[in-house]
Structure formats: C-alpha cells, structure tokens
Simulated assay, not measured.
Amino acid sequence: MSQLISIIIPCFNQSIWLAETLESVYKQTYVHWECLIVNDGSTDKTEEVAKNWAVKDDRFIYITQPNLGVSVARNTGITLSKGSIVLCLDADDLISKDYIQLAIAAFLQNPSLSLVYSEAEKFGEKRGKWILPEYSLQRMAESNIIFNAAFFKKEDWKRVGGYDEKMKEGLEDWEFWIHILKNGAKVYQIPKVCFFYRINNQSRNRSIIFNNYKILYEYISKKHIDFFIKNIGTYPELVKKMNKMKREFEALKYSRKNALKVIFNTLIFRKRKG
C-alpha cells in the first residue's frame, strides 16, 4: 500500500495566490496525498477558493479557525492529518509535479531520514535560483538554511511538540528544524529544483521588523542554547556581528584605496592603548 502524504497549507488573506498553489498540488505525479487547507481567519475569498477545490477533488480538505497565526494553523492541520509524512506549504508558493514522488523515493531508500527538501527557485518580484548553503548543523545554527516546505515525519512533529505557537511573528520554521535536527538527525536534499518561493510585498518574512526579529532571535537562542553552544560556541547574535565585522575588514583590506587607512588607524589605535 502506498504511503499517504499530508500537505498542510495555512492561508491568511492569500486567496489571490491560493488557487495556483493548490493547482501545483493537484498536478502531483504521486497521487496518495491529502491536502488540508487551514483558513487562519481570512477576510478575503480564501473560503470560496478552498471549498471550490474541495468539491473538485476530495483529497482537498477545508478547515477554518480564528486568526491564531501560522504555527497554530500548521499544528491544527497536522493534528487532523492522517499521513505519516508531512509537507507544510505556504499558500503563495509552488511545488514541482514530482516533488512528492522524489521525496517519497528518498524516504524509502533511507528510512532513517528525518527531513527531505530540494533545491529552490524564487519567482514573483525577484526571480532566479535560490542558492542554499550545503546543510550542516553548524550552518543551521548560524541561520535558517532550509525553507519551510520540506518533508518531515509526523512522529518527529509529535516528539518536539509541534511548531512553537509562541512564535507568531516569524522564524517558527527555523526553530522547528532546529528542534527536530539538533541531535544529529539525517537530512537529504533532492538535487533538483522542486520548490518555488514567491517574492511579494506581503511575504511574511518581509514584515518582520528589526526589533521583532531580534526578539525572535534571542528567544530561539535561549530555547536551544545547548545546540548553539555546541555548534558555534556562543549565541547566534554574537556570531552574526563577528561575521559582519569580518566582511567589513576584508573589504577594507583588499581595497587599494583604503589599505593605507587601515594600517594607519591600526597604528594609531595601538599607540593610544600603549
């Protein structure tokens, strides 16, 4: 019997893109899936679009809830899902028609895998290949290097307590990946572009203002302090600042125009300290 895949699509006022996203699910070459569309308190035509697709194909399941945020919406959908492998997909992004089939093949070939994702491409206001760093726990500690639309096992979601519902402003997918992977779980990247990330003015990541980002960053750092200390020896914020200083120094060092200035300022600094 083929394995059932559960696709969870939270939607908050994204009905203008939702049909296109559902179309990309509908066209999957792997047919044993269910798609739970979670209306997170939308005030647009999300309900109308979702219900139309549920009539078209009963593998689409419509769920509605008050506006409680993407983490709650994902957890709601996963709780009601029946598949053992889950894919969370934002309501404005797209997947290639063979994404599920390739992911299932990877899990079958290596049952010890905890997470499977692919190469990615941006479209919309910006277009082009999304260059993702090669996966490692150290790189994951420095920043989120895996997009949210990756496949994971429902048992792992249960083990870590799902998406953190306190993280309503963003970065919840990064925290979720850290929680699942931090003890050395195995990851595989499909060597093909199967995920298409839409860039638009309403993208959630764009709406994270600096102050909120800092708070979220500190929250993740403290929640997984053992992970960050083990992999980068300190808090991510300090590493971020150090990397920025390093880039600025390298830019000055290799600039002929500023080379003498760097040397001069260094000598002055040493003289004052002396």
Rank of each mutant, 00 (worst) to 15 (best):
Y217G: 02
M245V: 03
W17L: 06
V187N: 06
N205S: 14
N243K: 14
I7W: 13
K45V: 01
I178M: 04
E121T: 07
R59Q: 15
D173T: 06
D164C: 10
L4K: 15
S207I: 04
K97R: 08
G170D: 12
N212M: 08
W174G: 00
S143E: 15
Y163M: 09
N67V: 00
D156H: 10
I268P: 00
F147I: 04
D57H: 12
I9K: 00
I208K: 08
L216K: 10
L171I: 04
K45I: 01
R127F: 09
L18V: 02
E121S: 12
W157C: 02
C35R: 06
E125W: 07
I37E: 11
E169Q: 13
V38W: 02
I5K: 08
A105M: 04
Q109P: 00
S2F: 09
L181C: 04
E250D: 05
K192C: 03
E34K: 11
F123G: 00
R256V: 02
L181A: 05
S6M: 03
T29G: 11
K56L: 15
N231M: 06
I263G: 01
I5R: 07
L267I: 13
Q202D: 15
A105R: 09
L252F: 14
Q101R: 08
F12A: 11
F107Y: 15
A141E: 05
M1I: 01
A50G: 05
K230N: 13
I146M: 11
E172S: 12
I61S: 06
I220Q: 12
A105P: 00
K56V: 04
I220P: 09
I5Y: 10
S112D: 15
Y254T: 04
Y197I: 03
N201L: 11
E20Y: 11
L238W: 13
P66D: 06
N231F: 15
D40M: 06
K51L: 14
K182A: 01
K214D: 13
S6R: 03
M167A: 07
I5F: 14
K223Q: 13
E237L: 09
F107V: 04
I199F: 08
S84D: 14
R159C: 01
N212I: 00
Q138G: 00
S84Q: 12
P10H: 10
Q28C: 05
W53H: 05
L22G: 02
F228S: 02
K257A: 03
V160T: 07
I131H: 09
F152E: 03
V49D: 11
L94V: 03
W33P: 01
A54G: 11
I16G: 01
H32Y: 10
L267K: 12
R198D: 00
H32V: 03
W17Q: 08
A259M: 06
